[in-house]
Simulated scan of single mutants.
Amino acid sequence: MRSSLHAVLRPFLALGLAGLLSTATRDAAACWDGWYAEVGGVGITRGLGVAEWNPEHAREAARWGARINALLPPGAALAIEWDEATCASDQGACGAVTTIAAGSEDLPATFRAVAKAFHVPAAKVRKARALDPELYTVQIFAGSKRRALAVKDHVAALDAGDHGFFVEGGFPAPKQTAHVLRDPEADGPHRVIVGTFLSRKEARAALAGLRAKGFGGYVRALPAGKAIQEESFTKMG
């Protein structure tokens, strides 16, 4: 997914993060917990103390990824990790900027540092700061908790689905693409969703892949709710 961005960022992802959005299963133990996201020319690696997929983390990744991406010169790619951001380009789009002393631990501060490093005009900064993309997913079930968890496990057993732009859990262990969400305030059903996408087009492509493996469903905006019984890895048979 997004192979051109991976090609640009690969030299800077020393922890081997390129390709983490793949759904392929690997028998590997986690060595760090957190999330990784790709938004346009921006790749963000964020370490956290938990290894559970969280829809609010996906919203945060999309929001700040889009805002920072809007500041970049055309053709530039930015790898944001821990306490710094590294710019890369095949055509010199980064100019004199190589590293920026701000990273994924404070994305608002990184936004400001990127704007300063690239001398972004104030009007463009204000426009970028207002971005807040809507996220999409594929819902394949709504009903009881027991059945929802069974559907989620079935997706994992068939190695089906696509993470989309965002993946969270223990790295480098493989992560499940399906999640069970429930809104505790609405007392609604348990929903099984697969993937998190930045556009309906990407979500529709993921839905086609799920249908090829026997799942029904539809594209919708990422619903409110909290993920339950999350796992940082795909169950190995």
Score class of each variant (00 low, 15 high):
N69E: 13
N69G: 06
A70Q: 06
A70P: 03
A70K: 03
L72V: 11
P73E: 09
P73Q: 00
P73W: 11
P74Q: 05
A76E: 12
A76R: 13
A77F: 15
A79Q: 10
A79H: 12
I80H: 13
E81N: 12
E81A: 01
W82N: 06
D83Y: 04
D83K: 07
E84F: 04
E84M: 03
A85E: 05
T86V: 06
T86L: 04
T86Q: 06
T86C: 00
C87A: 11
A88R: 00
A88W: 09
A88L: 06
S89K: 03
S89T: 05
D90C: 00
D90Q: 03
G92E: 07
A93V: 15
C94E: 12
C94Y: 07
C94H: 05
G95L: 15
G95C: 14
A96K: 14
V97M: 12
T99Y: 04
T99Q: 06
I100T: 02
I100C: 04
A101N: 15
A102R: 07
A102G: 08
E105G: 08
D106H: 06
L107E: 05
L107M: 13
L107R: 03
P108Q: 02
R112S: 10
A113N: 09
V114I: 03
K116Q: 15
F118R: 07
F118G: 00
H119W: 04
H119A: 12
A122E: 13
A122D: 13
A122N: 01
A123S: 13
A123W: 08
K124P: 01
V125A: 04
V125W: 05
K127L: 08
A128G: 13
A128V: 04
R129I: 01
R129W: 05
L131T: 08
